Computed example of a mutant assay.
Amino acid sequence: MPIREIAIGRPEEATHPDALKAALAEFFSTLIFVFAGEGSGMAFSKLTNDGSTTPAGLVAAALAHAFGLFVAVSVGANISGGHVNPAVTFGAFIGGNITLLRGIMYWIAQLFGSTVACLLLKFATGGLTTSAFSVSSGVSVWNAFVLEIVMTFGLVYTVYATAIDPRSKGNVGIIAPIAIGFIVGANILAGGAFDGASMNPAVSFGPALVSWDWTNHWVYWAGPLIGGGIAGLIYEVIFISHNHVPLASSEF
């Protein structure tokens, strides 16, 4: 069972050069992703007078996030595994593929990267607001909660199948960043009109902090973490051999 593979990690891991480099890679990857994704929404709103809430705006957001995540995962894959998402990190931890200590380092780096990206956007755009994620009118917080669970489940399941599974090396491993970007873009098209389709606590945290808007913010943490944890548990238990050798830290 994955629970036997779960590890806290040794204290010295926090100062190990490889762990520090991996956390730094997560910081830059998340910064790149959030800057592109959040920035595209801000630009579309400016160009179309708040047209980001239109069907065209939804498509633009899906494309920007898909392309941005493809790049962010690709540039971080060889160093940290390119998680770019606390829910992905949590799913990897639940499956016994990353230690708790390294996971916490990733979380800090991801949240910091998202915050810096939003601060840079606010400065570079002359003070425009970085919009926090919100639940649309007519949609309850519990609807949004379920949406985030299901969408993040699909994302983390895709990460496991294309990147974490030891059998995903070769051609499948090569297309992992593309597949991960595609599923995020598709989920934004499916759920973006209802709750913004975050699937990523870091993506929600930066805009909420910079704009200081925490309305229903818990949904964008609880939903993705539950969905990611379920995906990691299911994939590890059902599809990965219980006796597999844990991945090297550079593969996380």
Rank of each mutant, 00 (worst) to 15 (best):
F112S: 13
A87L: 06
A179R: 12
L20K: 09
E26M: 09
G51W: 01
T30M: 12
Y235Q: 05
L128I: 00
T158L: 12
S140A: 04
P11S: 06
A25T: 10
P166M: 14
F67V: 14
V237E: 11
F239R: 11
G9N: 03
W212F: 11
K46Y: 14
H244P: 11
I79K: 09
L120Y: 08
D50F: 07
D213G: 03
I183P: 10
N49V: 01
G68E: 04
F252K: 15
F44M: 15
A61D: 01
L121N: 05
T215M: 08
R167S: 14
K46A: 15
M105I: 03
G76Y: 12
E5R: 15
T89F: 09
V146H: 00
S134R: 14
F93V: 14
A14R: 10
A124P: 02
F27A: 03
H217T: 00
V237H: 08
I108R: 07
G196L: 14
G126D: 00
A62I: 06
H242D: 14
I3C: 04
G227F: 08
N78P: 02
V88T: 09
G170V: 00
G191T: 08
G223M: 10
N187W: 05
I104L: 13
I174G: 01
V135A: 05
S140P: 04
L31S: 04
K21V: 07
W218K: 04
V203T: 08
E251V: 03
F252A: 12
G76L: 11
G206S: 04
G185W: 07
A197T: 11
L128H: 02
I183D: 01
G39T: 07
V150G: 02
V184P: 01
G103N: 10
K46C: 09
V75P: 07
F194N: 14
W212A: 12
A14F: 10
R10T: 12
A202W: 00
N78K: 15
T30V: 15
G37I: 13
A23F: 08
P246N: 11
A61V: 00
V73R: 13
G154K: 04
R167L: 12
T99W: 00
I188T: 10
T125Y: 02
S249I: 09
F70Q: 06
I240H: 01
N243E: 15
T162P: 15
A19R: 05
I3G: 00
I94D: 05
A87C: 08
V141W: 09
Y157K: 03
W107R: 02
